[in-house]
Design a protein around this nucleic acid. Structure first.
Length: 483
RNA sequence: CGGGGCGUGGCGCAGUCCGGUAGCGCGCCUGCUUUGGGAGCAGGAGGUCCCGAGUUCGAACCUCGGCGCCCCGACCA
């Protein structure tokens, strides 16, 4: 058996050998996505899309709970609208796709395929808002956007991707600020609860903020290879877009004012993040909350199993389904149990339930955890409770494991030597004093490829002098190499 | 867009240096035996060798041009 198992393992490159290759191997073997004939664009396959649907519904529920509603805006944006906000167009111009022809006709005004929807939504808001009584507007849209990136990577960066973008308009600066912060909080809670992914929340530096925003907040997660990944952003747009799109309202004091806006988004990149945070050399490990199949039942075919084991397996599947568990009964006869064990492990199913003639006799089943590979028996009596407990336990263990990994890959230093040496590799996060200048930030990036991921909300006092210039530190910042 | 690598049945690769019958493993199809950690045997199907030009009696292989993918940088969710 041993040589066979080794042969199987070679289908996925070990993480330690080549993390990037491991990542793409897992995606393709687990059938999450595939390359398409369109350059830079991928196909999200049913298993990957099922994960996205679970993320969507978990997020959408939170948006609704916080008073937001969904709408849909056009894919195409006239060039002139995109050009209205100077910083915005400057930031996005290099990566927009253009439509210059419709059928046989050359368009009078070229259209861009939306890279984000501030421009088109701002235009509509100016029509919809007249009075302070029209505010706030709390709209979200689920959509696809296009950004012509030079380098692409499955889920993490593709020319077209799926996301949600919230766009809100408010009466006051304080209200908009509170909204931007609140949605960042929603993101953090979502990631930690649903994806078992610990994140740092904070504010982006000037050089890293969204094109056209007053300021940008982000949540940052640490991947298994020691690189950070921005998992979500929330922008306080100030009145920048309101002024150029003429979004005004008459206030309670009869004066005419510009609205204060926010926008915030999360994308299908999160699927890639979940893969890289939790996966191992055997493949995916999915957090139960977003696993398309939370439990896979593998009946053991022996003797007259079709009349003894199989009916019992179907009963268990029905019971678990009734209890709200996403369960899949793998009763295919063309594959052996051992093959199925490996296959579902590779696909990251959190819990496997084995049932064979021996188990029927003893009124029990065998349960195997994907995360720890621990196997245990459980009586059939009260099985749905036991399964629910175990799914919760896996979810919690994955989060704790990820926290431990992040903490184990977070270095505090005040020494510029140690800082530089750390970034010769991929150390994870490095917390170090920074003077606050964009110049030092840029030099650090040029020297080490590390960037400030974000700054904690309550700026911690610097624990030393700036690791780049040696001047007095303004604060300790979180540095990392990032995706 | 710079540097490097790769493109050959569905997947992973050998063959390319030195031009001469397209191969291997896995997968797939059929049958029998199997089935509690990726089963065995037998038979079988499946290929514009990324695309286009050129050199040659003859090109997967040599030359030129293009396209795509991967890795490392600069840009980004």
């Amino acid at each position: 058996m041993a040589p066979k198992q080794q042969a199987f393992v070679t289908e996925i490159t070990p993480q330690s050998e080549d993390f990037s290759r491991w990542y793409t191997d897992v995606i393709r073997r687990a059938e999450l996505a595939d390359y398409s004939p369109v350059k830079g664009s991928m196909v999200i396959r049913p298993y990957g899309y099922a994960i996205w649907e679970l993320m969507q519904s978990a997020l959408d529920r939170r948006f609704k709970e916080t008073g937001h509603v969904n709408a849909y805006f056009p894919l195409f944006i006239p060039e002139s609208l995109l050009r209205k906000e100077a910083a915005h167009v400057e930031g996005f111009a290099p990566e927009v796709a253009w439509v210059t022809r419709g059928g046989d006709e050359t368009l009078e005004e070229p259209l861009v395929v939306r890279p984000t929807s501030e421009a088109i939504i701002g235009t509509m808001y100016s029509k919809w808002i007249q009075s302070w009584r029209d505010l706030p507007i709390l709209i979200n849209q689920w959509a696809n956007v296009v950004r012509w990136e030079k380098v692409t990577r499955l889920f993490l960066r593709t020319t077209e991707f799926l996301w949600q973008e919230g766009h809100t308009a408010h009466e006051t600066e304080e209200e908009a600020e509170a909204e931007a912060r609140r949605m960042l909080g929603v993101y953090k809670e979502f990631l930690e609860t649903e994806l078992a992914m610990p994140v740092l929340d904070g504010r982006k530096t000037e050089s890293e903020k969204f094109a056209g925003a007053a300021h940008t907040y982000s949540v940052e997660a640490l991947m298994g290879d020691g690189r950070a990944l921005q998992a979500g952003t929330s922008h306080h747009l100030g009145q920048n877009f309101a002024k150029v799109f003429d979004i005004t309202f008459q206030a309670r004091d009869k004066s005419v004012q510009h609205v204060w806006q926010t926008s915030w988004g999360m994308t299908t990149r999160l699927i890639g993040a979940a893969i890289m945070v939790h996966g191992d050399d055997s493949g995916l490990i999915l957090p139960p909350r977003v696993a398309p199949h939370q439990v896979v039942i593998v009946p053991i075919p022996r003797g007259d199993w079709r009349t003894t084991v199989l009916p019992r397996a179907k009963e268990i599947a029905a019971t678990l389904k009734q209890a709200g568990v996403r369960v899949m009964l793998d009763d295919r006869e063309e594959y052996k149990p051992g093959w199925k064990f490996s296959e579902w492990e590779m696909r990251g199913v959190p819990l496997r339930l084995e049932i064979g003639p021996r188990d029927i006799e003893q009124q029990q089943v065998l349960l195997a955890r994907r995360d720890t590979r621990e196997k245990l028996t459980a009586p059939m009596e009260g099985l749905e409770t036991r399964v629910a407990e175990l799914l919760d336990a896996v979810q919690a263990a994955l989060f704790e494991r990820a926290v431990a990994f992040r903490d184990g890959h977070t270095l505090r230093t005040t020494s510029s030597d140690e800082f530089r040496r750390a970034f010769e590799g991929r150390p994870g996060f490095v917390i170090a004093p920074w003077c606050g200048s964009a110049d030092c930030e840029a030099k650090i990036k040029a020297d080490t490829q590390a960037t400030i991921r974000n700054l904690a909300f309550d700026l911690p006092p610097a624990t030393g002098d700036c690791v780049r210039c040696g001047q007095a530190g303004m604060t300790d910042a979180w540095f990392a190499k990032s995706y």
